[in-house]
Nucleic acid binder design. Structure first.
Length: 225
DNA sequence: CACCAGGCAAGTA
DNA sequence: TACTTGCATGGT
């Protein structure tokens, strides 16, 4: 079975099990960007509290977030953890928006994806995963987002080597699947959901929707622990 | 109590 | 280049 069909098989099994996950949960693309920073190393439930506080203060726009003082912003996003660091990162991000796009996310939509990615990675606080999340979920670019769950799931099913990095994994999806934002959107959401529910360090593989999928490495294996 | 959650940057070797 | 550590809250 070729890579493309293997990946699509995984997608179908997960999609059947979980249904449409409707990512990213946000009212506007700017809210997606803010959420992408706030969710770093943080459970989404905590991010929602911070987003809610920002909404109450009408701060979920580039112009408003530009105006508010950083220390005040930090207190508002406290529930999302690492709040001083994240306030600084949000400031960097809106500064970037004004520097390059007149404070309007819509300016990013028509940008060359490769150039846009480099621009985002140059923003302090934006690494690969955050940059790709913004591109896919805020700008609807067909970029595949990979994270620790994606890697773990692919490893356990023998689709990538243990030393595979994020670039390799992103390339695997992008080189073997049709580059459609809607497909990548739901696929990444499904992988995160699967990781959270079934593919823990102490896995519940017998219940996982992928239990019938052997991949190339035989049955799912767990290393370490 | 420990560990994790939809990471990143700065420092060290 | 490949590591380690700080950031820091809230849920299980």
């Amino acid at each position: 079975m070729g890579r493309r069909r293997e990946l699509l098989k995984i997608y179908d099994l997960l999609n059947e099990h979980f249904g449409d996950l409707k990512w990213w949960p946000a009212d506007t693309p700017f809210e997606v960007m803010v959420g992408a920073i706030l969710t770093q190393n943080t459970a989404w439930s905590n991010v929602q509290k911070a987003i809610g506080a920002l909404k109450e203060k009408d701060l979920l726009s580039p112009a408003a977030m530009m105006r508010i003082e950083e220390g005040e912003l930090a207190l508002l996003i406290k529930p999302s953890g690492c709040y001083r660091v994240k306030a600084s990162r949000l400031k960097s991000l809106v500064q970037f928006l004004f520097d390059h796009y007149s404070g309007d996310i819509a300016g990013m939509y028509g940008k060359n994806p490769s150039i846009l990615r480099k621009q985002l990675l140059a923003v302090p606080g934006v690494g690969a995963e955050t940059a790709d999340s913004i591109m896919l979920y805020a700008c609807r670019k067909p970029v595949f987002v990979t994270d620790a769950y994606t890697k773990r799931i692919l490893q356990r099913h023998g689709l990538v080597a243990g030393k595979a990095d994020g670039n390799e994994i992103r390339a695997l999806f992008m080189d073997h699947l049709p580059r459609k934002a809607d497909l990548f959107n739901q696929f990444h959401a499904l992988l995160v959901q699967t990781g959270k529910v079934f593919c823990r360090p102490q896995p519940k593989c017998h219940l996982c929707p992928l239990r019938e999928f052997g991949g190339r490495g035989g049955p799912p294996r767990v290393k370490g622990r």
